Computed example of a mutant assay.
Amino acid sequence: MENCMTRYALITGASSGIGLALAEALARRGRSLILVARQRDQLETIALELTQRFGVEVLFRACDLSEPLRLSGFLLELEEGERQIDLLVNCAGLGTCGPFLAQDWGTEQDLIEVNILALTRLCHTLGNLMAIHGGGQILNVASVAAFHPAPWMSTYYASKAYVLHFSEGLREELKKTGIKVSVLCPGLTRTAFFRTAQLAVEKLAHSRLMMSPEEVALYAVRALDKNRAVIIPGWRNRWLARAPRLMPRWMMRKLAGVTTKAYCPR
């Protein structure tokens, strides 16, 4: 009977950007979905649209992952529920830009709660549930930012480095449980992230590195089929990920700082 159960892909940050594009790409393949984000109205509209377009079941849950108590309640629902989740996509993320000491601490804390703590807790809870059912797949979304530090966005870059290293370590740990772990490291992607992080969008709009969320999502789902460990869409982004190995770290920090500061408003 268990093999006949509907299995779901749970996607955080599913109301826009790469998360939404991944939801659409998976729905197109016939996957049933559970969408998670803060904006209930947007999720409801997206769920209805995906159901109508692709004929799949799409559930949604409004949850602010920066609030540990709300996340705890959501995780308890998942543990006590009967729906089997065999794919977790941790796509929710926050960014800040500017001098670290000038940042509002509450905003920095929210970034850490979402980018690191919520992602890790979701992996822990759903990883245990997947192990009980004999396997599953986890896709954590990091960034090419994970491969080097960058002044003026120090917390964001560090959080993505955590996601990369955590995911790679977890991949080895969970192999014998049947759980496959991959990490997606996109570069510049045309999303609302730049506005929320207060980056100068107009300076980035015509960058050759810029990809659409749909391009990133298509590349990601194809790489998931192949069980790739580290997924980097676009040859330019793959080059950027390798570049830090070719120069001294002091030079890498300097170059990253100059580049990042140019896009920060302060």
Rank of each mutant, 00 (worst) to 15 (best):
R53D: 10
L43S: 08
G93M: 06
F100C: 07
I116Q: 10
R7S: 13
C4E: 14
Y8S: 03
E173V: 11
G169T: 11
L139P: 04
K226R: 15
H133A: 10
E44A: 14
Q109I: 03
A200D: 15
P68N: 08
S182L: 09
L240C: 07
R208M: 12
R7T: 15
R238D: 03
T120D: 05
K226H: 11
L26W: 05
T155M: 11
C4H: 11
F166E: 02
A197I: 11
F100Y: 12
L129I: 10
G98I: 10
L255W: 09
G106P: 02
P233L: 06
Q103C: 03
Q39P: 00
E49V: 08
S207H: 06
R242M: 13
W152F: 15
A192S: 15
A145Q: 00
K203F: 04
Q84I: 14
D41V: 13
E2N: 07
A241Q: 06
T191F: 10
T177H: 03
E49P: 00
L87N: 05
N90I: 09
M210G: 09
D64P: 11
P149I: 08
M210T: 11
T196P: 01
L88G: 06
C97V: 04
E67Q: 14
M1S: 14
T120A: 14
A92Q: 01
E44F: 01
N115K: 01
I231E: 03
P68F: 07
